[in-house]
Amino acid sequence: MSRKLTLAAAEKMLDAAKREAQKIGHPMNIAVVDAGGHLVAFARMDGSIFASVDISQRKAYTAISLKLQTRLLGPLTQPGAPLFGIERNSGGLVSFAGGIPLTDEQGEFVGAIGVSAGSVEQDQQVAEAGAAAFSG
């Protein structure tokens, strides 16, 4: 049976991501979207920066839309690279770390997690913790 991205699964991911954010001492905004990029669950931790509310959701949307981690987009979107300008010309895609697509046991894309409010390394670390809660 294929694992679905249910609200319960999304909340489990939020909990894992929040624990990781608390562990590193940095409050985050965490978004989980379904396969269509629609918000399933969201958490804005106390003290997280307001600007990152939208960015976390756009990271999740980018990850599921392109079916790859947002950290991999950086080199592809630099001047002279094949995807230069994509984030400006495609509805606000995000080309830095913190967005991870989610797959089921058959490798089908079922959603994504996006995290924002820390450094790109912190965002990625917290997103990985959330994604692991779905995979695990």
Rank of each mutant, 00 (worst) to 15 (best):
S2G: 00
A9P: 03
A16N: 07
A21L: 06
A21D: 00
Q22H: 09
K23H: 14
K23W: 03
I24E: 13
I24V: 15
I24W: 07
G25Q: 08
H26R: 15
H26Q: 15
P27I: 00
P27D: 00
I30G: 04
I30W: 10
I30F: 09
V33M: 12
V33Y: 07
D34R: 03
D34W: 03
G37F: 07
L39R: 09
A41N: 11
D46S: 14
G47C: 04
S48K: 02
I49C: 03
F50G: 00
F50H: 08
S52F: 02
R58F: 00
A63T: 03
A63E: 02
T70D: 08
L72I: 07
L76Y: 09
P79N: 04
G80D: 12
G80A: 11
P82I: 10
L83I: 02
F84W: 15
G85F: 13
I86T: 11
I86W: 04
I86N: 05
R88P: 00
G91C: 07
G92Y: 06
L93T: 05
S95L: 03
F96R: 08
F96W: 15
A97P: 04
A97S: 14
G98E: 07
G98L: 02
G99V: 14
P101D: 06
L102H: 01
D104H: 02
E105P: 01
E105N: 10
Q106M: 04
E108R: 13
F109A: 15
G111K: 06
A112G: 06
A112F: 08
I113K: 09
S116I: 12
V120E: 14
E121W: 02
D123V: 11
D123G: 14
Q124R: 08
Q125V: 09
A127R: 04
E128T: 15
A131W: 01
A132S: 09
A132L: 13
A133R: 04
A133T: 04
S135D: 07
S135G: 06
